[in-house]
Nucleic acid binder design. Structure first.
Lengths: 194, 194
DNA sequence: CGGAAAAATTAGACGGTGTTCAATAAAATA
DNA sequence: TATTTTATTGAACACCGTCTAATTTTTCCG
């Protein structure tokens, strides 16, 4: 079908990830299909497995791409923000989740076997987002508390994430409404104020 | 195979949920199989569909049971706690998630089609947990802020949930460790202190 | 009691899925 | 050009959720 000369290995990898991400955004993790991705790019299912090793490998590559796009969105929003940078970061968090709900949810819906960890590239993407936020939290902290920045950021990311999850899965709606962004921001402000 | 007289409809429902929950706890949402549940109770797959209507209906029934057990655990822990009741509630939240990781995760891994909501019984389970926590938050709040209890509880549940998610999916570990219970408790104390 | 109506249960068919792997085709090398 | 290496295929396998016609079991009524 497709010829080797059509794409280098790296190009093929790229095409599969891009097509897979598009498919993920359309149907969501539960209905995602590696076969469907193969069909869309005009290769056979076997090729997907040759390139990514397994279904899990493919999903991890797609989720890694989502993380990169998420960080990109965050960085752009921060670049455009002057004051209220923490508010801008939180808003960016929610924005991305809402605009890419399926791809975003896939990051958390997918679970590696308990005894295996994501590859280094994936972990680096996670840490890159973390580092971006740490810088903002540190900047917002008074001098005497700068050393708390990393630990506090872990907790605040979890806080914002929790609000985002409950917003996306309609838990807030079920519990009588709420403004998730506003609430998350309130928690973050309290923590930074100390 | 199995005879109608063996079980009433309600008993059969109960047996399927109990067996399904056990299966869920063993293999997790991703490897859960309605066929396997049918095999275990000695009925055919068709019977599962007659009783629950669909795969989604079965999962919702199982998740609803998990919610009931979760609330039960929470209530027991609160009954045994004197002071530090919010700390006890948070600990109970994490405890249940860790002891029943697969069943707990299934609550969030499963997503209903975007245009449908869980049935009233399921929603009632969610609200029952919420109400239990609201009472504790209200008790911890000074008189002048009692009216904030519901809104604040929504936000604090999200906060604790976020910490629990990051603990369970190893995000905290990837980001350089943390004590999730301690961190969640710190955020809750700050919010209650105002 | 017996037969008809109702309810419960079955199991096979259908179109999917992830996964594997021997066979094949293409490219690189010598 | 002949050989080796690499890439690609697609059928086979064992599952999955879903549907439904046929069957069994129970209930009900005369």
């Amino acid at each position: 079908m497709a010829r080797r000369s059509d794409h280098s290995r790296a190009e093929l990898r790229e095409i599969i990830i891009a097509t897979g991400l598009r498919h993920m955004e359309e149907v969501g993790f539960a209905h995602f299909s590696a076969r469907e991705v193969a069909k869309r790019i005009g290769y056979s299912i076997g090729t997907i497995y040759n390139v990514f090793g397994s279904y899990d490998g493919l999903i991890l590559a797609i989720n890694g791409r989502t993380l990169a796009l998420w960080r990109d969105h965050l960085v752009r929003r921060l670049a455009a923000a002057s004051d209220e940078r923490l508010a801008a970061a939180i808003t960016a968090y929610f924005e991305f989740a809402m605009r890419h709900r399926h791809a975003w949810a896939a990051i958390y819906d997918f679970r590696l076997p308990e005894d295996t960890a994501p590859d280094e590239a994936y972990q680096a993407e996670v840490r890159a987002i973390f580092d971006t936020v740490v810088a903002e939290v540190r900047a917002a902290l008074p001098l005497s508390r700068k050393d708390e920045a990393e630990g506090l950021t872990r907790s605040l990311l979890a806080t914002v994430h929790g609000h985002c999850v409950f917003a996306m899965n309609r838990t807030f709606a079920m519990l009588g409404g709420a403004d998730p962004v506003e609430a998350a921001l309130a928690r973050v402000r309290e923590a930074v104020a100390g």
